[in-house]
Amino acid sequence: MTEIQAIDQHVQGSAAPGDKLLFDAKLLLDAELPQKVQWHKQTLALVNQYGRKNLRGVISDVHNQLFTQPEHQSFRQKILRLFS
């Protein structure tokens, strides 16, 4: 297993118990590994943030299409009736 895979499994909590124990020992012995884990966590957070931002954009585009284009008027009226 590569180091990146081991770090990812550790961060995601998906490592097998034996692999987790081995990784925890490596964290104690390798002075650079904790920093690599921190960088990995930050990278995952940025990727997740980008994904959420991208999804919000897609949802906004769909919303704009459904509630502004004339061909979706009947759908728009049905939705508005549900919430009135």
Rank of each mutant, 00 (worst) to 15 (best):
R52F: 09
D24N: 12
T2E: 13
Q12I: 08
N48D: 12
S74Y: 10
R52N: 08
Q5D: 15
A6Q: 11
S14T: 15
G13Y: 05
Q12S: 02
L28T: 11
Q65L: 08
Q73E: 15
I7L: 08
L44E: 12
L66C: 04
G51Y: 05
Q73H: 09
L29W: 08
L82E: 07
G57F: 02
T43R: 10
N54P: 00
Q9S: 03
V47S: 02
Q5E: 15
Q49A: 06
H10W: 08
T43E: 12
A25T: 14
A15T: 11
K26P: 01
Q49M: 06
L22A: 12
I7T: 09
A25W: 15
G18E: 15
N54T: 13
Q49T: 13
L82Y: 03
K41S: 11
D24T: 12
T43W: 15
Q9H: 05
K78D: 14
L82T: 11
A6G: 05
D30I: 09
S74H: 10
Q73I: 14
N64G: 01
Q12P: 00
Q49W: 08
Q5W: 06
Y50W: 10
Q65A: 04
S84P: 01
Q12D: 11
N54G: 00
Q38H: 07
P17W: 02
Q12C: 02
H10N: 04
W39A: 08
L80E: 15
L21V: 15
R52L: 10
L29T: 15
I59D: 04
I4M: 07
K53C: 03
L28M: 05
N54M: 07
F83E: 09
K36R: 07
L22K: 07
E32S: 05
S60F: 03
F83P: 00
D19E: 14
K53F: 12
W39N: 12
Q12M: 02
Q77M: 07
A45D: 14
L22N: 10
R81Q: 14
Q5N: 09
A16M: 04
A31S: 06
H72V: 13
L55T: 08
V62L: 12
L44M: 11
S14Q: 08
A15R: 01
P17S: 04
I7V: 11
F75G: 00
H10R: 06
L33K: 04
D19L: 08
A25H: 05
E3Y: 01
F75L: 05
E3W: 02
T68C: 00
A16N: 04
F75S: 01
Q73K: 07
D19N: 10
N64I: 01
A15M: 05
I79R: 03
K36A: 05
R52T: 13
D61W: 07
P70G: 08
Y50F: 12
N48Y: 06
D8A: 10
F23G: 01
L66V: 02
